[in-house]
Computed example of a mutant assay.
Amino acid sequence: MTAAAGPAARVHADLTALLERVADAYALGDVTGWEVLTTGYEDCNVDLATTRARVVAKVFAAGRDAGIAARTAELIAAAQAAGVRHPRLHRDRHGRLVHSCLGHQVLVMDFVPGRTLYDLDRAPTPGELAGIVEQAAKIHTVDAHPERVFDPWAVTNLAPLAGQLRDVLDAEQSRLVGQALAGIAGVDRDALPEALIHADLTKGNVLLGDDGAVTVLDFAVANRFPRVQELAVIAANLTHGAPAPLPVRAETIAELYSAAAAVPLTPAERVALRVFTRAAAAMELLGALAEWHHRGNHSPETEYLIGLGLAGLRDYTGVS
């Protein structure tokens, strides 16, 4: 059994005892092994093996909103009904999707064999990217209007976060982030069609199964926002490492989305997408710098995201 210091520290209970209780509550048999999954900044996801199954237990961090697990489960169910591929959620002995245990909310879901794009350390192939964008288009058809949850990595937080980090940005970072801020400030968001978006379609939340299928993970920060905000995150994060520069990658995603979605992108959305993608790259940089400087999180993932965000912003050098 191994426990990564970062995610495991978000559990304010003995993790072994908690997992044993979860296994019993879901009638999974005895625990035979477990491993904390190391990516992510909010909760603690555990690969849990028992005598009857192999599952992933999502243990919501201490201090999270009381309804966050139920909200997440409801959105997963709605997305699955729309054809989105997400691991099946399990119910406990009382028929509940959400289990409360030792001060934490827990969801249990099927373990899907495969690896995330973060683990694979590469960009998706053209075929994989088309499958990911198709999943995004299906998510956007979900007729759900949940109460908004705060997402510290959302583009909407770009200006305040840039202000908080102004003293740690070097000259290049400050210039590049300033350009992203100027661009997003000029966008009329009210003119952009909104939808329920996953909001975190990143390398760590897209699993490529052993059968090649695309599986979407984690709806904890899904909110209603302009749908181009979703596509911008896909471009800035998921396609990082592809040979084309970020503006070109965003155009490719726009074409794929318009082919897959019931309602293609409008001309205004296509213009806004370039601005949002630049802002999404800035948020990757700033979110990771906040982890590094404000929370002392010097993990490989944080270092990776600093480089990812900076590379995306540099792709806009010379682009108006």
Rank of each mutant, 00 (worst) to 15 (best):
D200Q: 11
A4G: 04
A82P: 06
V271I: 07
A57M: 09
R278T: 03
C101N: 02
V31C: 13
I234F: 08
L15V: 14
D210I: 07
A8P: 05
G186D: 14
E128T: 14
T51G: 14
G40W: 11
G29H: 07
G309Q: 11
T16W: 05
T51K: 05
D121G: 01
A9W: 10
A213Y: 00
P7K: 12
L305V: 00
T277F: 06
C44S: 07
D43V: 00
D43M: 03
I253H: 13
E20M: 01
G178K: 03
L308C: 13
G212R: 08
L308M: 12
R85G: 02
A159V: 13
A5I: 13
E194L: 02
L161T: 05
G40D: 09
G241W: 07
E134H: 13
F111W: 15
F276K: 08
A281N: 04
R10M: 02
A171E: 15
L169F: 09
I132Y: 01
R249M: 06
P146S: 00
R175Q: 12
R175H: 15
F225Q: 12
D151I: 00
S174Q: 15
A49P: 00
E128M: 09
P126G: 08
T277H: 06
T51D: 04
A185Y: 03
G29V: 06
L89N: 05
G296Q: 12
N157I: 00
D188G: 04
A236L: 08
Y26G: 05
G309S: 12
G114C: 05
H298D: 10
V168P: 03
G178I: 02
L28C: 08
A62P: 12
V106L: 04
Q80V: 10
T16P: 04
F219E: 06
S258F: 03
Q80M: 09
L37Q: 11
L273T: 09
P87C: 06
D30Q: 12
G83A: 04
A3D: 03
Q135F: 06
G309K: 08
L238M: 14
A61Y: 08
L256Q: 10
V36L: 05
V46S: 07
A9D: 14
V168S: 09
D47Q: 08
D170S: 11
A199L: 03
D24V: 10
E303F: 10
V233C: 11
L286A: 06
A123N: 04
G67H: 13
P152Y: 07
W292P: 00
T202G: 03
G307E: 13
A244L: 14
E251W: 05
D200C: 07
G178P: 09
A290E: 14
E35R: 14
A136D: 06
A262E: 14
I253G: 13
D24E: 15
R227S: 11
D218R: 04
A17L: 12
G212W: 10
G183R: 12
D151H: 13
A137V: 02
A282S: 09
N297F: 04
H94C: 01
A180T: 00
A244R: 12
D24A: 15
A144N: 04
H145I: 00
L201N: 01
Q135L: 06
N157T: 02
H293Y: 14
T266K: 02
Q135M: 13
D14S: 09
P226Q: 02
V112S: 04
V206A: 01
G178L: 08
H198N: 09
L310A: 06
L192H: 05
Q105L: 10
N45L: 03
L176T: 00
L181Q: 09
